[in-house]
Design a protein around this nucleic acid. Sequence first.
DNA 1: AATGGCATCAACCGCCGTATA
DNA 2: GTATACGGCGGTTGATGCCAT
Length: 219
Amino acid sequence: MRGWGVSEEGWRKGPWTSEEDKLLSEYVRVHGEGRWSSVSRCSGLNRSGKSCRLRWVNYLRPGLKRGQLSPQEEGIIIELHAMWGNKWSAIARCLPGRTDNEIKNYWRTHFKIKSNNKAPKAKCLKRDVHKINKEDLHNNYDEQQFGLKTSQYQLHRQELESMCNNNIWEDQYAPTATTINVPAIPYYPSLCDSLIGDEGLWSCLWNLDDFHMPNYIVN
DNA sequence: AATGGCATCAACCGCCGTATA
DNA sequence: GTATACGGCGGTTGATGCCAT
């Protein structure tokens, strides 16, 4: 256990207080974003520039959404992660009000399961399977989860259970962007078309230099 | 009611790219 | 051209609350 306290440089670490938040917000209001290394000198905060930037970006910045991701947002995350891999900041740029940290946490919580940890993996998957079962009762699992039509959505219980039982979740679900082969995650034509057709997806792509088309989209 | 395990979120760490002196 | 500082990013960890047993 590392524990919170004071860094070697003397910066305070750990959870932020409301007083610190006020100081940081006031600093950004006056000086704008950036120049994070001078925050401590100018604002009286005993925090590193990195810590200040992170707190602002992930918590204090205006316009941030709090709380549960919507089914549409979940669908976009799945779709973009399948294309880009762990490019959290790029994915976040396509979800206004959401931070890379939030999306990263969401992904790890819901999808990323360590392959060397079989018991929790199975448990987690079984929980997800259970959730799907409940929604299947209403015959609208896909719409509630991803906001997509049933005909476009091929993920079903048996596949999840099979992956769960065979412990092949990580291999097939979280490969690299270039080798992706994901039978459980279908291509969502309507979602992609709407993103590509509007300002959405491609406006996010202009600064990405390593775009790879995954196999399942080509198929 | 107690407790152990798990899920979730906030924050830190280390690395890398870029800007500047 | 090189060194240094800074900002950004992805990975990891710590704290906490919830839930099942």
